[in-house]
């Protein structure tokens, strides 16, 4: 029996994983791409409409709002959760607060709770018959009081963003804390002896050391933000009106409620394009930052 050379044996060993990857990742993406050019009516594909679905979506004000809401989620993730995660991790790592183990536990807690549970709890507290609303009505003697921010076209997303910030910062904090612990303590001690200020320690030691992790977390944050669904669905279902709609909800509704698989596929392709584009952008920024630190 002829023996395979080393290179060929690598390919043979890779083949099963490659086939699975092609079947469950690449094939659905191309299938989705194909479907995105089709028209559906009454649960049946009625023909090829080229870029019709894309034109429809890109001219739909509901999609514009969904996209903007996703951008807000992305901004709060990248510019809120990650910096706050670094800050909390640094505070705990330098032991500037007493009871660090307690705070580690408390800060990490939200990420262990299901998004649906968090959404239901939030609704229980702030709904028109919730604890907070009832309490405010009682102390202000105003029986008409409700939290109006939920009905505001401009600010209805704010409560969702606050919950997302609270829930996900803890995950980043744990990641950064683990990586900070890999920096030898002698480095910090030497910097302090040399008279370095905290800002210098952070910008010259901590951030360069964490930069690969920051990049990874940014990729996670961007991809996670663009596919946000569970918390928003359970908390507001996109309402009131469509003030808190996000792209994944838009996709879900067109695909599974209206059975327009062509339009739903087109939305998914747009999400993929946005994700890849934004992650490439972050990769570019990271490469530049790395050069600067070098």
């Amino acid at each position: 029996m002829p023996r395979l050379n080393k290179r060929s044996s690598y390919y043979v060993l890779l083949l099963p994983a490659l086939l699975i990857y092609l079947a469950i990742i690449i094939f659905p993406i191309f299938m989705s791409l194909g479907l995105s050019f089709t028209e559906w009516r009454r649960f049946r594909m009625t023909g090829f409409i080229g870029l019709g679905n894309y034109m429809d979506i890109l001219s739909d004000p509901v999609f514009h709002r969904s996209l903007w809401n996703n951008i807000q989620i992305m901004l709060i993730s990248v510019l809120g959760q990650i910096p706050l995660g670094i800050l909390l991790a640094y505070l705990l790592h330098r032991k500037w607060v007493k009871g660090t183990k307690f705070f580690e536990f408390m800060i990490f807690l939200p990420i262990t709770i299901s998004s649906v549970v968090i959404a239901l709890l939030w609704n229980r507290v702030f709904s028109p018959v919730g604890i907070y609303t009832t309490f405010v009505r009682m102390i202000t003697s105003n029986p008409d009081y409700v939290v109006r921010i939920f009905e505001s076209e401009k600010f209805a997303m704010l409560p969702v963003l606050v919950v997302l910030l609270w829930q996900h910062t803890s995950l980043y904090m744990v990641i950064f804390l683990a990586n900070l612990q890999r920096i030898p303590s002698s480095v910090f001690e030497a910097a302090v002896i040399d008279g370095a200020k905290e800002t210098t320690i952070i910008t010259k030691i901590v951030l360069p050391a964490l930069s690969p992790v920051i990049f990874t977390c940014s990729v996670l944050a961007i991809s996670g933000s663009l596919k946000s669904f569970d918390l928003v669905y359970a908390m507001t279902a996109g309402g009131p009106v469509n003030y808190t709609y996000v792209m994944a909800l838009y996709l879900y509704q067109h695909t599974f409620t209206f059975h327009n698989y062509g339009k739903g596929s087109a939305v998914s392709i747009i999400i993929v394009i946005l994700s890849v584009g934004l992650i490439s952008l972050v990769r570019g920024i990271y490469a530049k930052a790395q050069k600067k630190f070098e």
């Binding site: 609704n123 028109p128 029986p143 008409d144 409700v146 939290v147 939920f150 009905e151 009131p240």
Partner: peptide, 12 residues
């Protein structure tokens, strides 16, 4: 309607 009718679930 009760205040916050559009924030209130059916069960509430």
């Amino acid at each position: 309607f009760s205040p916050g009718v559009n924030q209130m679930s059916n069960t509430e």
